[in-house]
């Protein structure tokens, strides 16, 4: 919830930290959704780069999967 509110009101790196923390602990579907929300809200059409936040969310969940499997107790 704080990540979602941070998308609207906080600096962009605060939801990013929340996404990182969530993906380290859980295989959270919310992480890519938060990234998608940031893209839908803030991405400018015609920008010289593609929307990255949703992609970063997917990558975070995928990259931390081995860590969660091996290190997280009760995962």
């Amino acid at each position: 919830m704080s990540c979602v509110l941070g998308v609207f009101f906080a600096p962009w790196w605060i939801p990013l930290i929340g996404m990182l923390a969530l993906s380290v602990r859980f295989r959270a579907w919310e992480v890519p959704c938060i990234g998608l929300l940031m893209d839908v809200l803030w991405y400018a059409p015609g920008a010289p780069y593609p929307p990255m936040c949703a992609l970063v969310g997917v990558m975070l969940v995928w990259v931390f999967e081995p860590f969660r499997t091996r290190c997280m107790v009760g995962y």
Partner: peptide
């Protein structure tokens, strides 16, 4: 009507 720093894309 938005924060100047919420957007990671400078919008």
């Amino acid at each position: 009507v938005s924060s100047w720093y919420s957007s990671p894309y400078g919008t």
